[in-house]
Design a binder for these strands. Structure first.
Length: 362
RNA sequence: GCAGGGUUAGUGAAGCGGUCAAACACGGCAGACUGUAAAUCUGCUGGCUUAUGCCUUCGUAGGUUCGAAUCCUACACCCUGCA
């Protein structure tokens, strides 16, 4: 893949006490690590314009294969100029493969060796997603970082019984993802990057094997999936501490789905280079935000009714710098004005971007 | 003036003899949210105090009944017709 070319995909500049600092090169530009990606599932980071996203310091946006395939469809997006033009974002885009929906929509999907069949919630149509299909869609969309299609399981008893199956299937699907990706990109001048995903639930043995298997391929980056799905901080931290010495240092390490500041600090200090999460935007729309010290406040609380201070006086985000008071934001939340969610999203994403920036060196 | 309808907790609105401190919605208070089926969901929302407990509530004042938000009488206010 791209790692065979002259410029390495990932340039590690510095490692201090487990914290890595470097540059990830994508065809849409180079980005500094560690970094956090806000989630724009359906082609937009909810309630934010690309300019607002950019103002937070976010370098990449994550989009979703499953959602964009259903609506409006990758062919439509391709006709409209590809995902970058479509959503008016010229920075790098990473697309998730749809693997997470195998888990989050498990109750309305059916898994077979071939792939996963979903029921389109809009019209009940059966939608088949396979590793090959996922690659085709992501390439049609024009993403700069493409994720392999994986089999994600939860942590309840039923799911735990599937742990091994999911681990094994994830690797067969990884091989198929890689094969399809190579087939479709062989004539491309500037192909996107492909990342493989390690699974294994909370089983260290499986996790180790899974990571080794992903790293035995020539994918451009290594992702850890299937965590932060309800296992709780101690178990997640324990697993990531266990995995930290096992990563290939020459490639980027992406922990999928983590965005609680406390968790982010821990994992960045244990070798993770990139993260994404819906938390800053979802929490923001629900009225909660982070302030200095990783503390969380509920802006809808009665005690902020006449609070003239900004969300966080130590913050350099647009919302805080503009002087929007907690009292104003509380009011807008209370009356259902979406501006409140927008302004708080800007703050929350900026909070996580600053957190990442503090770890970067050089 | 006559006839009819109405007055229920912060608001709207069910209930029309006991299982009613009173459905439901909104509002209010608090919480949850980790590769977004999430601008969503959960709990609480008369007082005391947390109990298979007590007290005070369904326009006001009386009455009937073992028992009334529910039935009767009077009064107050509101609405709709006819004058």
């Amino acid at each position: 893949m791209n790692s065979t070319k002259n410029t390495p995909v990932y340039a590690l500049h510095n490692t201090t006490n487990g914290v890595r600092s470097g540059i990830l090169h994508t065809r849409a530009g180079a980005v500094k690590t560690p970094f956090f990606m806000p989630v724009g599932t359906r082609g937009a980071v909810r309630s934010l314009t690309p300019e607002q996203v950019k103002s937070t310091g976010a370098q990449l946006i994550l989009g979703n294969t499953y959602h964009l395939h259903l609506d409006p469809g990758e062919k439509t997006i391709k006709k409209l100029g590809g995902l970058h033009a479509f959503m008016n974002w010229d920075g790098p885009i990473l697309t998730d493969s749809g693997g997470f929906q195998v888990f989050s929509l498990a109750h309305m999907s059916k898994i077979t060796e071939e792939g996963v069949t979903f029921n389109n919630p809009k019209n009940g149509d059966k939608v088949l997603l396979t590793p090959e299909k996922s690659m085709q869609i992501q390439l049609d969309l024009g993403a700069d970082i493409i994720m392999a299609f994986d089999d994600v399981v939860g942590l309840d008893d039923t799911s735990r019984k599937r742990e091994t199956e999911a681990f094994e299937r994830t690797h067969r699907w990884l091989d198929r993802s890689i094969a399809e990706f190579k087939l479709l990109t062989k004539d491309m001048e500037k192909p996107p990057l492909l990342f493989g995903i390690a699974q294994g639930g909370l089983n260290k043995d499986l996790r180790k094997k899974s990571l080794e298997m992903v790293q035995s391929t020539d994918v451009d980056g290594i992702a850890i999936g299937g965590l932060s799905v309800g296992e709780g901080t101690p178990l997640m931290h324990d697993m990531l501490e266990f995995l930290s010495p096992l990563y290939d240092p020459a490639r980027a390490h992406y922990l999928m789905g983590v965005g609680e500041p406390e968790n982010m600090r821990f994992v960045i200090e244990h070798g993770i280079d990139m993260l994404d999460c819906v938390l800053p935007t979802r929490n923001a729309r629900h009225g909660s935000s982070w302030i200095t010290g990783d503390k969380k406040i509920h802006l809808t609380n009665a005690k902020y009714k006449e609070d003239i201070s900004v969300i966080d006086s130590g913050c350099d985000c647009y919302t805080c710098q503009s002087g929007y008071s907690r009292g104003f934001l509380r009011h807008q939340f209370k009356v259902g004005e979406t501006l409140a969610g927008t302004l708080t999203s800007i703050h929350n994403i900026r909070y996580l971007e600053r957190l990442c920036e503090e770890y970067r060196q050089g």
